[in-house]
Design a protein around this nucleic acid. Structure first.
Lengths: 356, 356
DNA sequence: TTGTAGGCGTTATCAC
DNA sequence: GTGATAACGCCTACAA
């Protein structure tokens, strides 16, 4: 762990100036003989460029930050999985920030952009406050926001469409003949909770189904809470024949309770989750789930940022990623495993694999 | 996105020298009046320290890298989840490397330590080659290896104990009265495959059970492969009453096949997985699984690295993390959900939560 | 207490 | 082609 060699060390050893060393190292036109001497010296010394000094001079760090609420959340993980290779391919390193869903931490990250340790930032904030917007307008480096941001904010923006997503699910249930479609939501004061609740109501309306308060239960975005909520809903509305759950964990809780209550899924009650996490494919019955395109959003965000890093100031762009319904057994009754194994590994299968 | 202010800008504005600015910014003894002027100027200009310039001078980046094979693998994710907060609390940023299980990429990361863009590295290599060891000996920054490394290698080392892990599981099955305990393993030419296979044999021996080749089936570490392997094993040995699976995905495949074959779990066949991933708690029946302590290993690695960053050269340390058996319904038949919901949220529940 | 000046390792602009 | 030399932004003797 001795102090590494610098271009000065090489210059001395090769008997040339540091300018020549730098030129050789950067492939600028140089006499053949000089090139040889420098390369030889560099090799012998095991020289490696100092990235910090480089950055100071070039004003580029070749690092990009990704800030999200929680590393463990599968939705963010899906984004990360897409962002990483895109950045890597373009020669950027990834700096990871976990903000623990604390707004102050997000502001902090935005502020730290001024330290110039990264060339840009991808951020997926829990909600966008006025303070966020202020910081975004003053940001010292390009930012891509995954989420929604008011028009006119000078950042690229990637959005999901949970409204259409909920509609896809409700339509699917309706097409299967379900007419008493319940909703198990998370808190209404969260952005997704509010959006999904409204979308549910809207979807019913479009289908000409009545909106019935008794069919709606609010809990939190956890499995145990989902279970509790469904238990109460069943008690109040035994006739419910389908459940639209605001995320996969809630849906797993629903499966727990339905099983315990002796209701068959999907014969008696069909269940749909949301986010299409790995858990959806692992549960039994496997869970039909609305994908909001986390992976696609991550990829789009990374590409937007890279583009912006090259073409300094173009107009901010908005990308909206369409949702997709991943149909599985909890609505159709058809299990993909092990029957379809001839068709090759599933996506979740490959993802989870590895010699851990 | 105009060029940010520097200490020079502040110095001019405050009418003092850059040295004074630096002193104020670093809290060194300075006259009150000067402090005021500098702070005022800094505030008005929205000054933020340039981390790159700082690093060049101080030779510290306050960044640490974590290199693993695949961001999507739950075992690595569990490590990441622990590493992140430890580093953050100590004021370090996290740079993430995904090596895609390619040895050359790992060597690359080791080499890039010479660029000095991080102060240290935590690496979980797929396997440790001679080239790895060479690079490790020549590493230009402290490294912690999660995995096994020969004695004498000058790096801190954190290990799992899959041998004891398998023994825990086999003992558990034996205690439940199972005597025809099969094993579904991954390829024997992988490190975990070999270790787990040997441990299985050893565990049987200790219990005085015969080792029967017919009870062992080799596939790969994926769900569909696990299903295939179990299907063949069932055909060959219908009397099998327990399955030790080399990871959770294989175990999920086992559940699929057993269900399709009309075998009850655990009444007819008990199933144990390995790694104790989130999937184990999501499946039905929920999966008893051997935790190899990914989370603990991550935490230990981060702490070792931080310690090393403070106390430059102490002796390399070795930490071995004990395995733990997470008992669930696939062996005991007792489902934690929703019965135990009064007991509060489970670990997996909290982990997965969030307003995605 | 404060300012001047040198250096961290590179890159880039000059003359030569 | 090549070699001094001046930045990049910050920290820190050392001198005043």
């Amino acid at each position: 762990m001795a102090d590494g060699p610098t271009i000065t060390t090489i210059a001395e050893r090769a008997g040339v100036s540091i300018a020549s060393v730098s030129r050789v190292l950067n492939g600028l036109p140089t006499r053949q003989e000089t090139v040889r001497k420098v390369m030889a010296a560099a090799d012998e010394l095991g020289y490696v460029r100092n990235a910090v000094a480089r950055s100071l001079k070039s004003r580029r760090t070749h690092q990009v930050a990704f800030a999200m609420a929680d590393v463990g959340n599968p939705a963010y993980l899906a984004m990360l999985r897409q962002i990483q290779p895109v950045l890597k391919a373009a020669g950027y390193r990834l700096v990871l920030h976990s903000t623990d869903a604390v707004a102050a931490d997000e502001i902090d990250v935005l502020h730290s952009l001024g330290e110039r340790y990264v060339d840009g930032l991808i951020m997926s904030p829990l909600r966008v406050t006025e303070q966020h917007l202020q910081m975004l307008r003053a940001a010292r480096a390009p930012v891509v926001i995954i989420g929604s941001v008011p028009e006119g904010t000078p950042v690229d923006n990637v959005r999901a469409d949970s409204r259409t997503g909920v509609k896809l699910a409700v339509d699917h249930l309706h097409a299967l003949g379900r007419r008493r479609i319940g909703m198990v939501n998370g808190p209404l004061d969260t952005v997704p909770g509010a959006a999904r609740g409204a979308a549910y109501r809207e979807a019913l309306e479009t289908l000409g189904l009545p909106y019935d308060e008794n069919l709606v239960e609010i809990g939190d975005f956890y499995r145990a809470e989902g279970a509790r909520a469904v238990a109460e809903l069943l008690l109040r509305e035994p006739g419910v024949d389908a459940l639209m759950c605001a995320n996969d964990l809630i849906a797993l809780g629903a499966l727990d309770v339905l099983r315990a209550a002796g209701r068959r899924v999907p014969e008696d009650v069909a269940v749909v989750g949301m986010d299409d996490t790995d858990l959806a494919a692992a549960s039994w019955p496997s869970l039909t789930s609305v994908s909001l395109g986390s992976a696609e959003r991550g990829k789009a965000a990374a590409e937007l940022l890279l583009d912006r890093l090259q073409h300094g100031d173009r107009e901010p762009r908005l990308v909206t990623v369409p949702p997709r319904l991943a149909v599985r057994a909890s609505t159709t009754g058809e299990e993909p495993y092990p029957a379809s194994r001839a068709a090759g590994r599933t996506r979740a299968d490959k993802r989870e694999g590895g010699r851990s």
